[in-house]
């Protein structure tokens, strides 16, 4: 039975699941079915940050154009353009034992593609969630349903895995930005044009 988290809640991951090495992070959402406007395209991305909360380089930003980290520890499974159907819309695979020691936080974000041009925001997205699954046993360990936490934001940091001593923990962050992916990149110390 997965632990269901609320915004801001932190839980232990590896301490309660000893020997856990490979996790699958699933992100999902539903967009309403209006046919009058633009379609929705939501993207997930991953920031691998150091102790100061910043990435060391572009390579630590894992997204649809950079699907795999050099260390082989984080792999983005690809872009889903519609967000249709139940279950995960996008997935990220993580090998915890391969994460470089300098990486202290692995943050998961969801952004709306072309949000400003299409006048879209998370107030039009429902049933968004993040879940952490033990890839070997396929057991769901942690789940955070974002529910009512967002409205006018166009980019959100859903949650992060972070080191705590020799263990990994998960923080259901749920903080939003109005500037899309660019605002997020700045937050994690990346320069974008």
């Amino acid at each position: 039975m997965a632990v269901s988290l609320k915004k801001g809640q932190k839980v232990d991951l590896t301490k309660t699941n000893p020997g856990l090495k490979k996790v699958l992070v699933g992100l999902g959402w539903d967009t309403k079915k209006y046919d009058g406007g633009h379609s929705f395209d939501l993207d997930s991305s991953v920031f691998m940050a150091g102790e100061n909360g910043k990435v060391t380089g572009d390579g630590d930003f894992i997204f649809y154009n950079n699907k795999k980290h050099a260390s082989d520890s984080v792999t983005h499974q690809g872009d889903n353009l519609t967000g249709e159907g139940a279950g995960d819309d996008e997935q990220v695979k993580i090998s915890l034992d391969k994460v470089p020691p300098l990486v202290h936080k692995i943050a998961f974000a969801v952004t709306i593609h072309d949000a400003a041009e299409r006048s879209q925001n998370f107030g039009q997205v429902s049933n968004a969630f993040i879940r952490i699954v033990n890839e070997d046993s396929n057991q769901e360990l942690i789940r955070y349903d974002l529910g009512e936490d967002f409205s006018v934001e166009t980019a959100i940091v859903v949650g992060e895995l972070y080191r705590h001593g020799s263990e990994w923990k998960f923080n259901a962050i749920g903080s939003g930005f109005q500037g899309g992916l660019a605002a997020l990149c700045k937050n994690f110390g990346l320069n974008v044009d």
């Binding site: 209006y34 009058g36 107030g123 039009q124 409205s151």
Partner: peptide, 29 residues
């Protein structure tokens, strides 16, 4: 933000826990 729509959802007033909330929608069909 409307153009070709002929039917729109202006707003949804909905229950969340013990309260009523309103969501500004403005999208349609």
């Amino acid at each position: 933000h409307l153009s070709a729509e002929t039917a729109i959802v202006v707003t949804e007033i909905y229950r969340y826990k013990d309260e009523w909330r309103i969501n500004a929608v403005g999208s349609g069909f």
